[in-house]
Design a protein around this nucleic acid. Sequence first.
DNA 1: GAAAAACGTTACGCATGCGTTCCATTTTCG
DNA 2: CGAAAATGGAACGCATGCGTAACGTTTTTC
Lengths: 116, 116
Amino acid sequence: MPIELTASQALGLWYGVSLNQVRMDERDLTLRQMAILLHIYLVPPPHTVRGLAAELNVTKPVITRALDTMGELGLVDRIRDERDRRNVVIKRTVGGALYLEKLGDRVREQGRRLSP
Amino acid sequence: MPIELTASQALGLWYGVSLNQVRMDERDLTLRQMAILLHIYLVPPPHTVRGLAAELNVTKPVITRALDTMGELGLVDRIRDERDRRNVVIKRTVGGALYLEKLGDRVREQGRRLSP
DNA sequence: GAAAAACGTTACGCATGCGTTCCATTTTCG
DNA sequence: CGAAAATGGAACGCATGCGTAACGTTTTTC
C-alpha cells in the first residue's frame, strides 16, 4: 500500500517533523545516528558494528562512536557475542523503543496535517 | 488531503530517507540547518535572523552560523535590507531549490516503496 | 541631537563528531 | 601449534556546532 505524495507534501512533511524535533530538542541525534537507530529497530537482528558500517557506507569508528553516544542515552545496548567473542551484538532497549515511538507519532501527526 | 500512516509506515519512511541521505552524503546538514532551510523555502518571505530564531526556538548565533555554512554551500543568500539597514533578508538560491527538490524526491520515492 | 533600543555578528571556551591509523582480542586455517 | 585474518575499539589531530557574552551599526525615542 504505497503512499503517493506531491512534492509540496513531501517537503512539508519533512519540514514539520524537523521543526517539531528542533523545537522540542529532547535529544539531538545526528542524521547518521538516526539512521543507525532506525536500522537497529526496523531490520531483523542480529546487528554488528561491521554490518552496520557496510549498510550505511561509513567507517567502523563512526558506528562505535554512535553506539557510545546512544548507549549513554539509553537508546541501545551492546553485549559481546559469546559464540564468537570478536563480535558485539547490538540490542534494543525500552528507551530506544519509546524514542522511536515518539518519532513515529510525530511523522504521523505531520502527515495528518498535510494540505493537498 | 491528509495522509494517514501506520506507525510502521511512518518510521519506515523516515528510515528510508535518512538512510538514503546518509549513503549519498552529498551534504550533511544538521537537523537545525535542515529546518532552517526548509523554513526559508516553504514559508513566504521575508525571512530575518531574528524571525527564524524565534520560529525555531533557538538563539540568534545559531541562525547566523547556519546561514554562514549554508551560504558557503550555495543553498541560501543574504542581503542587507536597504529600507532598514539593521535587517538582513535571507534569499533563496537556485542551489537551495535544487537541493530541496532532491530531498522531496527522496521522500516521495520512499513513500512509494512503503508496505502496508 | 543624545540616549536607548534593535539587529545581526563576532569572540571565546567548550563539547562532540570525523577520518586515519594503530592496537588487543579472538578465531580460522595451513 | 603458529601465522594470518577478522572484529571492535582506542588514540590522535582536526573540523564544526554550541551557548554566553560582548560588540558595531542603525534606527527609534524622548
